[in-house]
Design a protein around this nucleic acid. Structure first.
Lengths: 344, 344
DNA sequence: GATTGATCCGTAAACGTTTACGAGATTATA
DNA sequence: TATAATCTCGTAAACGTTTACGGATCAATC
């Protein structure tokens, strides 16, 4: 005898009563509920997930999909761990569990999602590393599974998303640099199939235009989202015939590579070239000269992601009635020395 | 009509036949199997996980538990994503799926494991961040669920584990430093309730003894596993009355903090004090002077963890007959400048 | 032509829950 | 006291699979 039957037999009640007692249903005597709870704790009984999910039609589990190629793995740990922490905490308050679903780059992300969602392993999904054209979004939309993506896609507002406020970052950065009379502002962005790169680039163009500065495509450096990418971007910048006086980055670890390359050239950020990094990170905080960059609470972002997802789930509509979310997540400027002291 | 029934109706065969066809059972006509496979692909049918798991008694899912407190998230060392990638790849070869289970520090890790395992969400578990006295191990041993822990516990070989070869690291490091006639070798370790700290300390003592150097407890600096921890450790070292001439670290990000503190004191690793870091990381690779540390393939480690776990699972005994694993994972020395040039 | 064997497929039970339904016991109301 | 209302609990169906079992068909063998 196993599972709930064992518990019921042990208590001399029916399995129905045990189930009702554990699930907090009203029609069970308080006295017997206590006995059931006590016995469950004593025998270490936990309801079988498969049985429960099969009957209820929902799992109580939310999936967070994450790509783990060797390159991304080497770089972005602390972003995802912080995010996971926030999401997990917010979901736990509603008795939902988070599972992180690592998809290797060997596998097609869309078919991975199809497998996971088709099996009904999860009730809803959180997507990260959103592509500009992302099949996963199409599939999830069609399959009517609640989901939210961290990052916009090219599909615009046709699905719920939360994204970092790249427009805000571009504006703040460009304004700040222009105020110091920079006009040749280079930017290191990932390739445009990553939507992040596309969005940032557009915002950068708009910010320049606002200041009447013509956009020069030669100042756009396409770089990998890594330290190495930053190194190569800085290298490319140093070779430019009419060298830009400022550089903006859109990935946090790039800054370290940039500093390294500048260092090799006996140049210094803030003195010889203005540098504005992206996200403040444990590493960036200790660069010298200190890096001007943008602060962001990953936990808070995770909570927002989780609650925005709940808002799309019918069973939580009462709690989060705002419906589908399209949110730009603000970042706060952290003033450092890396972009000042040049045109003073 | 949903699920397998829908597919069966669509094909005018029984659900039993559909199931057998999809599961590769022998007693089904090749012709009909093809039709079933084609229809499944066309209709996007994927067997419901709950139904399947309930019937089969196993889920085909392996859990990897990970702690995600705000501090560990912020100080994460890009260790986990690489590990996940390796584990995921190895499991996929056996049609197993990996889910990562984030446990916030609010929750007791042992009761978290009990909840997850009790619900039969997973067939087996991989534990990380092993404590010296780890209740999770006790629970999993009792519950007869296959598991492996990354990191030894104080319980020794009573359960399967893979751990980094701290003995090897301590030996290599101490040998190298002693060969340069260092005798006052300080070490920065996490507190001993983290088993890692305990193990490393013992290995360090043994290595000293091998060289006839008496162990001096004052040279043991307890530090947090973070950049900040490294900074404070270096600070503490600089205040010592009879300053040690060498310092070994057991957490990779510490090196950055150590460099920062040394820099503030106008000291340099390798010139004024010999420093040996721990794991090579994207950051450590670009420190200046270059850091002497230890290399480790996270993907390979992940594969080893996954396969060692499979070896403990009855259904894979045929493939991996070696049984329970206790493995020390070797690290390769990467020679840098941070520990040389002192006593030359 | 009867028997055997092989091949293919349908039937139904089982996995562990939750929950609609109804029955019995008890209390409140008339 | 009869009736209604309330409280508590047991019964059984249902969720979507997999798989043991047996039946049907057909070819091969004697």
């Amino acid at each position: 005898m196993k599972g709930i039957r064992r518990l019921a037999q042990h208590l001399n009640v029916s399995i129905g009563t045990v189930s009702r007692a554990l699930n907090g249903k009203p029609d069970v005597n308080e006295e017997t509920r206590k006995r059931v709870l006590a016995a469950a704790a004593e025998l270490g009984y936990v309801p079988n997930q498969s049985g429960r999910a099969l009957r209820k039609g929902s799992t109580g589990v939310i999936g967070l999909m994450m790509e783990t190629s060797p390159e991304t793995a080497a770089n972005s740990d602390n972003f995802f761990l912080g995010l996971m922490d926030g999401v997990q905490g917010a979901l736990a308050r509603h008795n939902l569990d988070l599972v992180v679903l690592p998809c290797s780059t060997d596998e097609n992300p869309a078919s991975y999602v199809q497998r996971i969602v088709g099996r009904r392993l999860v009730d809803a999904m959180i997507l990260t590393s959103t592509q500009r054209h992302d099949e996963r979004l199409d599939f999830l939309s069609r399959s009517k599974i609640p989901f939210i993506s961290l990052g916009r896609s090219g599909a615009g507002d046709s699905h719920p998303w939360i994204d970092l406020d790249f427009e805000g970052v571009a504006n703040l950065g460009v304004d700040r640099l222009v105020a110091q009379s920079h006009s040749r502002i280079a930017v290191a962005v990932p390739p445009s199939d990553i939507n992040l790169g596309f969005v940032f680039l557009e915002a950068y163009k708009a910010a320049l235009q606002r200041h009447g500065i013509p956009f020069d495509p030669d100042l756009v450096i396409h770089a990998k989202s890594s330290e190495q990418g930053g190194y190569l971007a800085a290298d490319q910048l140093l070779r430019m015939p009419n060298r830009p006086t400022a550089l903006m980055l859109v990935y946090e670890l790039m800054a370290i590579g940039v500093y390294r390359r500048l260092n090799e050239a006996k140049l210094q950020a803030g003195r010889d070239i203005a540098v504005i990094g992206f996200r403040e990170s444990p590493q960036s905080r200790f660069l010298s000269p200190t890096l001007t960059c943008f602060r962001l609470s990953l936990q808070a972002l995770g909570i927002a992601v989780a609650e925005s997802l709940l808002a799309t789930m019918p069973e939580f509509q009462a709690l989060y009635p705002q419906g589908e979310v399209h949110m730009l997540w603000p970042l706060e400027l952290v003033e450092g020395e890396s972009d000042t002291g040049l045109h003073r």
